[in-house]
Every structure is written in C-alpha cells, then in structure tokens.
Amino acid sequence: MDGYLITVLSNIGMISFVALSAYILLLSGQISFGQQAYFGIGAYTAGIATVMWQWPLAGALVLGALVASAAAGLVGLATLRLSGIYFAMATLAFAEIMRIAAELLVYRREIGGIETGPDGIDGFRDIRYFFANDVSPLQTCLIVYVLLGMVVAALFMAERTRAGRMLRQVGEDPLLAEVHGIDVMRVRMAAALVAGAVAGLGGGLYAHLMTYVEPKSFDIMLGVHALAYGLIGGLGTALGPLLGVLIDIGLLESTRIFRGYRMIVFGGLVAVLLIVRPRGLLDENAVGRIRHYLRRRGHAGD
C-alpha cells in the first residue's frame, strides 16, 4: 500500500473514534457539541505519558482514555440533567474552555537532552514514540483499526444487552423509560463515561500518529463534524458514524474530485440527504431490514 492511502485510512480511523463518541451520546438522546474536548484530553494525556514519563504506548492510551472518561463524568454531573440546546451549549462551553486551557498550558522538561512538552498555543510537538520504536506507518494504521474494531465490536455486543436497549429507550423517550423503572440519569452518566473514554482513546492515537497535537486540533469544527457523521451515516448501528466519516474524508476530501467545491457539494448533499433520511443512511429501519435479510439467508443456507 502506498503512503498516501495509509495516511487517509489512519485519518478515517482516528476521526471515527470521535464520531462514535458523539454517536453514543446521540443514542442516549443528548446532542453534544463537546466530544472534541475528550479527544484533546486523551491526546495531551497520552502524549505526556509516553514522552515525559516514558510510559509504554498501551499504558499511555489507557491513561488517556481514563482521564478523558473521568473528565466526561465530572462534566456529566453538572450537565446531564440539561437537555436539548442547553446540554449542547454547556458541552460546547466546556470544550472551548479546555481548548483555551491547552493554549495556556506550558509544561516543558528536558528529556534526553532535548526540551519537550506542551508549549501553549504552539501545541505539543515531537511525540516520537512510533519513530523511536521503529513502528512503520502500516503497523500504526493496523493498531488504529484493531482498536477501532474492538470498540465497534464492544458497541455491537452492548446493543444486544439489556443496557444497550435501555440506552436507546432513554434516547427515544426519557419519560417513558423512567416509567418503566429505568434510572435515566444513571444510563446517561454511563453513556457519557463510555463516550468520553472512546474519544480519549482516539485522541491518544491521534497524538502519536501525527507526532504532534495543538489546541486547534480539537476546536468546535471537530465536534460538529463528529456529530454530523453519525447523522449522515445513520443512528441505527455503530457502523453508521463510520460510514459518515468514510463518505466525508474517504470519498470527498481524499480523492479531491470536487477540488475547491467540496464543501459546496457536500453541504448541499448532506442537507438533501437529511430531508430524505432524517436519521441517516443506516437508520433503525434500514438496519432492521438488513438484519432480517441476513437472518433469512442464514436459514436458507442451513
């Protein structure tokens, strides 16, 4: 595979984590403009862990996901009882505070004779774990997709459990869910914690693949894109957000068919698509039909 293709695939993989993070909250009925904050927190935390504390990558990624998840939990305590635009604005406010905090964050130390670490608005450069350990771009791309596959598989399995159904029910009608004895706040909190961890994991990968991360990498544009991917691809399955990312980055940005007019085409397409399918391409109906079809074929093969 050539280098460009690998880079594009890696980008699709990394952004998919944020898209999945926004998707999990969408399922719980909450529109978050702020999942990019946990992406950023994961990126900075994991980067600091490998560069400045010389942790191994796996530990750094786990730490990034955990710290992001904890932050999401704290924000959740303050915001989860809000709904609609109030929740969306509160999460956006938090994300912007984090972005500006990253602009102010200076934590420099000398590691191996070179001064390194987050340097305010210039960001955090030289996160060279993959270079130092001779990991090739193809291998890093594989790491991204193995982890992404694990997250998607976990979400697939979770959807079939009681907890997964509770999540969808809370999203569809919180009042009805409460009547059925579901603790809506606990379900939302669980969704927020998982969503934070998923975004944090993606951020950790991003920092190491790009070898740098700067406050601009997680501004409002990333958050709103992440939200849009789920709605374009569909809210019926965890593959929906992935499809959304694939369409935008894979098809439009990377192939450069519509150079200079990409957003004019894409913006119009998305708006029209949403009129036809307000819950995305792979919405609940489509997923139900596909499942039915697969089951029938499975029986026919018996």
């Binding site: 939200l227 894409f266 119009g268 998305v270």
Partner: peptide, 27 residues
C-alpha cells in the same frame, strides 16, 4: 433546506443540516 422539511421531532437533523450549509456558505 434545513428547517421547513423537518418537524420539531428531527431537531438534530435540522441542526446538522444547518451546519452542512455553514460549510457550504464558507466555501
């Protein structure tokens, strides 16, 4: 494009559609 075709039920769709037009208008 973003508001008339949707009912109040599809709040997220309206919002994302308006975001899509944001990108379009900027370009």
């Amino acid at each position: 494009l973003c508001f008339r075709p949707f009912g109040e039920g599809a709040r997220a769709a309206s919002m994302v559609a308006s975001f899509a037009l944001w990108m379009q208008l900027e370009e």
